[in-house]
Every structure is written in structure tokens, then in C-alpha cells.
Design a protein around this nucleic acid. Structure first.
Length: 369
RNA sequence: UGGGAUGUAGCCAAGCGGUUAAGGCACGGGACUUUGACUCCCGCAUUCGCAGGUUCGAAUCCUGCCAUCCCAG
């Protein structure tokens, strides 16, 4: 029996999380976060729909509910960083920060003021106590695991965290919701940047950053087209380049950015060597345990993931201060500065860092730290 | 304005008298997905530079015109 505040998004996962806790006999309080006050291109404010769903679900489960607004914190602690990274030509992952700064910081603190002993979310992940510390574990539904987005959490956050649906499969969650008659049982999974939602990314970014068109060139320097602004592209990207025909007729991919020259580097063929990296360096390391798993300079083998849902990749890591040097067992495609490299050992997520550079990353002119 | 070559969708590019005008890239839509991407699926020329002609039938043959490229001047 504990007082538990559940972060409810209006989706099935968090609905079922709340339902399960209630059934276990806890004193459950549902809280909806509205952290982005803006309508999308079609003029729809999906947050209103989601809040309505949260209310309906809570009525059915019979728990009290509240709505809180962390829009300012989100802007200052997540979105500012997001724009900053794009200005540097990098490709940030705002959701990782959102979890640390909003859901497991601002929101957690708010829950504590409500007298909560625990804070729950609908994340696909697990928490366990191991060797006197809290461990972040991969979810039972291997295909939905969201630990990639949670690697920045620390011991304090995990000591309060609880993921009621982390041991379930997506199908089980929907079944559970349907049987309980929850209106969110068949609701489509949400995608896009957390709290901001799915939208035309280019148009969205354009509202905040000035675009500066320039040349699109091959690694050899041949001009093959024009780009609308370097921030609109990311390494490994194919669509939106607008260049077709010519050359050997294969697809074109972004393989680098020349920040100083405002040129986008592109190459043809998905097997271009410039698209693959044998190693990468990650900085701003964050460990779930609060400290690195091994001492500096001593290499260790573990698994790594460079993007959400990627199959775990074998790697050898060497840590030196706040920098991890990662050597992949197999070359990795489109290793992108700004994105997260997250480390795993067995079923445990150890932590991770932000990729600063990688072999063949093609980033020049100020993108590197 | 002498000679040669070429003109097929936004870009490459098959097709060389018989019919639904290959394929790839780009683009559009969808699936997948709590980042950005990748990937996958579907769609995408009633029409072959233009105008005539030959033929039962032409993008495919003939004539003229237009355009572009190359070599000569």
C-alpha cells in the first residue's frame, strides 16, 4: 500500500499502468502533463484530446487526477538544448533529456509534494535493486523497450520509479485495457518528439531557426544539388534530398556536413564506406549507477545501441574521464553526433552518452566538440 | 543553316512495326516508430520534341519543322 502518482499521457500504456497499480491496492493519483502549448499544423491541439482521455480513464479506474504544466521548464531545460544542438549542426535526442529534466525531475518533485512514495509511468522498462543500488532493466517486450530514452536517469529517480507495464507485451497491455473498458485500449501509439508530437519536422524547425540554403556536394566536391539549410538533414538521411537520376542511379544519402562552408555532403549507395563507422566517441556520460562500471582506461565489453529500437550491438568501450571511446564489433551505419549511445550488459542498461564524433562522420567546420 | 548525333515522366534510362510504354532515382501516400533518421509497402507518362504521311496497326518507318550537343568553319 503506497501512494503512487502515475504520469498519464492519455495513451494505453500509462492507462494500464494506473489500472494495475489501483488493482494492487495502492492509492493511485493520475497526473497529466501539458508541456507544449501549441497547436499543430492542422490547428489541432492533441494535448486536449489526451487530457480528455486521461480524465475518462481515471473516472473508470476511479482515481483522482490532476493536470500540471511544465511548459516553461520544458522550454528552458529541453527545448533550448534541442535548438542549440541543431545550431551546431548536430542531431539531438530531446526525449532523453525530457525524461531526466521533466518526467523524472520536475514531475517527480511535483509528485513528492502530493505525498507520493513512488512515481509510475507507462514506459517499457524495469527497475530492480541489485547489489545495493537500483538497476534499470530492459522491458519484457524486446520490441518495445524504451530504456534507450531513460539512460540519463540516476539513482534518485530510479529509487522512486516504477514501471507497471514494463513486464508486459504491447498486446497484453491492449487486452488488459480492452477488458477493463478503457477508452484508450485501441488508441494508436503516439510518436514524434515527446509532448510536441508528430509533425512536419522541417516546417517545425523552420519556426525556430533561420534556414541558410547552400550546395549539396559529393565527398569528392562535385556539386549535385542545393539544400535548404543544414539543420534540416541528418546523417544517413535519404529522403528530401531531391536529387535523382545521374551517377549510377542509386539512392543518395547524407554522409556529412561542412558547417563552415554550409555544404551538405552526400554520397550514392547505401553501402558507401562514408556511411559506416568502426568507432565513435561519446561525451557527457551518464551512468545509472552514478559512476562508470569500470575504472578509466580499462576496456570492457558490452552491448550498445545507437538509436531507439536498434538491435543491441557488441562493442568494446574504454572510458577516459567524461569520454567513452567505443569500438564496434561491426561497423555501424550513420553514427550521428548528438544522438545517444546507450550501453547494456545483460538485461541491464548501464547508462550512456551523447555521440560527439565517429569514424567517417563527415562533420567538419565546428560540429565537433 | 557544311557534316554528324540526339530528342521517351522532375532526372537517368529500356524499348527499334503490334499494344499494359521496362527499370532505377526523385516525388506523393501508407506501414513501422515516444528523437532525428533508416527500412518496408503502394502510387506515379491513354503517352513517347512538334506537324504531317506510310500501314489493319507506329514511340518504333518516311517527310518537314523545332530544340540540344559534337565536329568542321
Amino acid at each position: 500500500m503506497a501512494r503512487i502518482v502515475v504520469g498519464m499521457s492519455g495513451g494505453v500504456d500509462s492507462s494500464v499502468a494506473a489500472l494495475r497499480l489501483k488493482r494492487e491496492g495502492h492509492e493511485v493519483i493520475g497526473v497529466f502533463m501539458n508541456n507544449w502549448e501549441e497547436t499543430d499544423e492542422s490547428g489541432v491541439c492533441s494535448a486536449e484530446r489526451d487530457w480528455a482521455d486521461v480524465q475518462r480513464v481515471c473516472e473508470i479506474i476511479d482515481i483522482p487526477y490532476y493536470s500540471v504544466n511544465f511548459a516553461r521548464a520544458y522550454r528552458e531545460r529541453v527545448f533550448a538544448y534541442f535548438l542549440d544542438e541543431y545550431r551546431r549542426g548536430r542531431t539531438p535526442n530531446p526525449d532523453v533529456l525530457c525524461n531526466r529534466e521533466i518526467k523524472f525531475s520536475a514531475f517527480l518533485d511535483f509528485a513528492l509534494t502530493l505525498g507520493a512514495q513512488k512515481v509510475a509511468t507507462g514506459h517499457f522498462a524495469g527497475v530492480d535493486r541489485r547489489d545495493g543500488r537500483y538497476a534499470l532493466l530492459r522491458s519484457a517486450d524486446e520490441n518495445k523497450d524504451q530504456t534507450y530514452f531513460l539512460y540519463m536517469l540516476g539513482q534518485r529517480a530510479l529509487s522512486y520509479a516504477c514501471f507497471p507495464v514494463g513486464g508486459m507485451t504491447k498486446a497484453q497491455i491492449r487486452d488488459c485495457a480492452a477488458q477493463a473498458g478503457l477508452p484508450t485500449s485501441a488508441k494508436k501509439d503516439s510518436t514524434g518528439v515527446c509532448f510536441i508530437g508528430e509533425r512536419n519536422f522541417k516546417q517545425f524547425l523552420q519556426q525556430y531557426l533561420p534556414a541558410q540554403p547552400g550546395d549539396m556536394v559529393t565527398a569528392a566536391g562535385r556539386v549535385v544539388g542545393r539544400h535548404d539549410g543544414l539543420m534540416f538533414y541528418t546523417l544517413g538521411q535519404r529522403r528530401g534530398l531531391g536529387i535523382g537520376g545521374g551517377g549510377d542511379g542509386r539512392r543518395w544519402f547524407v554522409v556529412g556536413k561542412d558547417l563552415a562552408g554550409n555544404r551538405l555532403i552526400v554520397e550514392q549507395g547505401d553501402d558507401s564506406p562514408r556511411l559506416y563507422s568502426g568507432w565513435a566517441q561519446a561525451g557527457a556520460l551518464s551512468w545509472i549507477a552514478g559512476r562508470a562500471p569500470v575504472e578509466d582506461g580499462r576496456p570492457f565489453e558490452c552491448m550498445v545501441r545507437l538509436r531507439h529500437r536498434q538491435t543491441l550491438q557488441g562493442a568494446r568501450i574504454t572510458i577516459e574521464g567524461d569520454c567513452a571511446h567505443i569500438r564496434f564489433d561491426r561497423p555501424q551505419r550513420a553514427v550521428t553526433p548528438g544522438q545517444a549511445a546507450v550501453f547494456y550488459l545483460g538485461d541491464e542498461c548501464l547508462g550512456g552518452g551523447a555521440i560527439d564524433r565517429a569514424e567517417h562522420d563527415g562533420m567538419t567546420g565546428g560540429a565537433q566538440t
